[in-house]
């Protein structure tokens, strides 16, 4: 579930209120689908329970006065998630996008994320290529389909890498 890591990552730049958190998420990741408040609070509750965030209360009453801050365990969790390649499969873009943007926003090396993912993709593509060259016509067609889709993902990733500088200037708060 990438929303949890995304919210956690957003906190790396400093403690936030739940409302700010939602706004930042929507701005950076919620292109077509904004986050519900409810989703923010249930996710934060889960992260709080796991010890990845802690709550700083400000003077006054009500939920709006709660500020969340990331713990050391939370930081470690985000780092491990970013370093872990996603299993290559179609329609990964939202997760990969989240990862790249988050890496940038938290000052990490996004190229690292791309390289990790490319290595993982290539591992699968090599298997498919091998199967294609050794198999029959049907294998060839099926493998080509998969290969082109995987390639498309990676090409997008590479384009993103090439645009790192631009992304960095537009996304940093």
């Amino acid at each position: 579930m990438s929303v949890g890591f995304a919210l956690l990552g957003l906190l790396e730049n400093g403690p936030r209120h739940g409302y700010d958190l939602k706004r930042s998420y929507d701005k950076a990741f919620g292109r077509d689908r904004a986050l519900h408040y409810g989703q923010v609070y249930t996710t934060m509750a889960r992260l709080l329970k796991n010890g990845f965030v802690e709550v700083e209360s400000e003077p006054g009453e009500g939920p709006e006065r709660k500020r969340y801050a990331i713990t050391d365990a939370g930081v470690t969790d985000v780092r491990e998630w970013l370093a872990r390649p996603e299993k290559p499969e179609p329609y990964l873009q939202s997760t990969l996008y989240t990862k790249v943007v988050l890496a940038l926003m938290t000052g990490r090396d996004a190229a690292e994320v791309l390289d990790t993912q490319r290595a993982e993709h290539l591992r699968l593509m090599r298997v498919l290529t091998k199967r294609k060259t050794e198999g029959d016509f049907a294998d060839e067609l099926i493998c080509d389909h998969a290969l082109f889709h995987l390639e498309a993902d990676l090409r997008w990733l590479e384009l993103a890498a090439a645009r790192l500088d631009r992304l960095a200037t537009t996304l940093r708060p």
Partner: peptide, 12 residues
């Protein structure tokens, strides 16, 4: 620079 070409290799 193409992954599909690189996939013909043993490693990248």
């Amino acid at each position: 620079h193409e992954v599909r070409v690189a996939a013909y290799g043993d490693r990248e």
